[in-house]
């Protein structure tokens, strides 16, 4: 049994389990063997000084729900793609928009925004006043520019 930091009940009546970053992978493996086969959602919440990563797990057979949370200060979390393949795109999206690095992810690239985008938009300190324009270079790859005249 893996250590859990705290356990509580959310507004939606689901069990919320907070685990530490080191224990995430063993804990998740245990959950997977316990029958939680459906990873509904991976969310990263920017709490200004740290980042919460929330996993909503669901068991198709027993119709049970568990919410697993980890808190990370340096925005690095181990990837659960090896356990649930469905985490693949979710983690890419969270990396793209919130800026959490998922270690061990097979293809840790941005999914929505072009690779050279500056900043992660869902961070609370993201500067919305800077407008970034996307343009396409000779090879057909997208790049980002701050110059309004260059972009479309």
């Amino acid at each position: 049994m893996v250590d859990i930091i705290s356990e509580s009940k959310g507004k939606d009546g689901r069990k919320i389990v907070l685990v530490s970053v080191e224990n995430l992978i063993p804990f998740m493996k245990e959950m997977r063997t316990n029958g939680f086969d459906h990873l509904s959602l991976v969310t990263a919440v920017d709490k200004k000084d740290s980042i919460d990563v929330v996993y909503h797990l669901h068991s198709m057979e027993r119709n049970e729900y568990v919410v697993v949370k980890v808190n990370t200060k340096n925005s690095v979390v181990p990837s659960v793609t090896g356990i649930w393949p469905s985490a693949n795109w979710d983690e890419r999206e969270q990396y793209d928009l919130v800026g959490v690095r998922f270690e061990g992810h097979p293809n840790m690239k941005r999914i929505f925004l072009p690779e050279s985008w500056v900043g992660h938009p869902l961070r609370k300190d993201y500067d919305l006043s800077k407008v970034q324009y996307i343009n396409m270079d000779e090879d057909g790859e997208d790049y980002v520019t701050f110059d309004a005249g260059d972009g479309w």
Binding site: G10, K11, D12, R14, S40, L41, V45, D46, H56, V67
Partner: peptide, 30 residues
Amino acid sequence: GEYYARTESSKGEFGVYIVADGGVKPYRVR
């Protein structure tokens, strides 16, 4: 508080996860 609502849209399981901080605007919507 926070709430994760799952509904069945025409395409599948549609989930909305809202984290609120007591303000008039949501803190995080996923």
